[in-house]
């Protein structure tokens, strides 16, 4: 076996065994959150890295997914699993309805439009308190206990969610790899590289932008639904432009179109500020500084920089 795969296997094993060795619930929570960010960053990469759509509304769809699933459970007493799927479907429809007119807009106007939509959705969630609970929606049910073959699993435990998020992350990455390495993915790349040429070669540019946008939003929405049940309470801020900005920073810093990038970005930007003194206060400074340094000195992100160091590195960094 190639040494590369042994390393990958060891990393994978370590990730799977984290909850066995880490006893502190706090650290399990931290790793789970980083996993959630990795899923969001991976899905944003489909729109931003692969299709070239700079979206500042990605967190909005995470938020709509979280809220619609939670509201279905709280107000209509829908069981968790159907609520999660229905919430994701609702968000996909909203994403399509927003994306269809928006994606005809090009360049900076598109970015501005997504920014406005992100802010507008946060304001709507905040003010529509009859439905969304205003500043916070709490009391979202936990996952139940399940007994299979006489063994009881507590699905509300922090450890279960760690594995759940890990599974969603792996499935997300597999989905994205499959989409990217196909006719659809090649069309995304064409749109990113030269929109006019793509149209001149018979590609339905707005149609494929919509596919990319909705697919990315749907993954974020599904993750949002799980997040709602994990936290038990959600706030409008999770849908806000600030959150969307953080996701964009993570993808730019980590590196687009790369599994390593989608892992490095969230790891770095989630954990490093934790180790800083007075972390909350220094976080914006740290985010901004690292973003500017990376964008000036490593235009392809950390993963891209590592790849370009040596031809062999390019093979090692997925």
């Amino acid at each position: 076996m190639h040494p590369r795969f042994i390393i990958y296997f060891l990393i994978g094993l370590a990730v799977v065994l984290v909850p066995v060795f880490v006893q502190s619930n706090y650290w399990i929570y931290m790793f789970t959150m980083v996993g959630i960010f990795m899923v969001l960053v991976s899905s944003l990469d489909l729109a931003y890295g692969h299709t070239g759509l700079v979206s500042l509304a990605h967190a909005a769809f995470f938020g709509i997914g979280a809220y619609s699933s939670a509201i279905l459970q709280l107000k209509l007493a829908v069981p968790i699993l159907p609520a999660l799927l229905l919430g994701t479907l609702i968000t996909a429809i909203i994403a399509a309805a927003i994306g269809w007119p928006m994606l005809r807009i090009r360049g900076p106007y598109f970015v501005l439009g997504t920014l406005a939509i992100g802010i507008a959705i946060e304001i709507i969630i905040h003010n529509w308190d009859g439905l969304t609970g205003g500043v916070s929606l709490s009391g979202i049910p936990m996952f139940p206990e399940v007994t299979i073959f006489g063994t009881t699993f507590d699905l509300s435990s922090k450890r279960f969610f760690y594995y759940l998020v890990l599974a969603v992350l792996v499935v997300t990455q597999i989905l994205i790899r499959r989409i990217v390495n196909s006719r659809t993915g090649r069309t995304f790349a064409s749109i990113r590289e030269n929109e006019d040429l793509a149209a001149a070669l018979g590609m339905n540019v707005s149609g494929y932008k919509l596919i990319s946008f909705v697919a990315a939003s749907t993954i974020a929405a599904f993750m949002g639904g799980i997040y709602a049940n994990y936290m038990g309470a959600i706030e409008p801020e999770i849908a806000g432009s600030h959150m969307s900005f953080n996701l964009l920073v993570m993808i730019v810093v980590g590196g687009t179109r790369s599994i390593a990038g989608a892992v490095i970005g969230p790891l770095l930007l989630w954990f490093v500020p934790e180790f800083l003194e007075a972390a909350q206060m220094y976080r914006p400074l740290f985010f901004g500084a690292i973003l500017i340094i990376v964008i000036i000195f490593m235009p392809t992100g950390i993963a891209g920089k590592l790849r370009s160091l040596h031809p062999r590195m390019a093979k090692w960094i997925p």
């Binding site: 499959r178 989409i179 196909s182 006719r183 659809t184 993915g185 090649r186 064409s190 070669l201 590609m203």
Partner: peptide
């Protein structure tokens, strides 16, 4: 990429 407009494979297919 030039062949894309003559082939049919959808997202689901991929």
């Amino acid at each position: 990429n030039g062949l894309s407009c003559r082939t049919k494979s959808s997202v689901w297919n991929s």
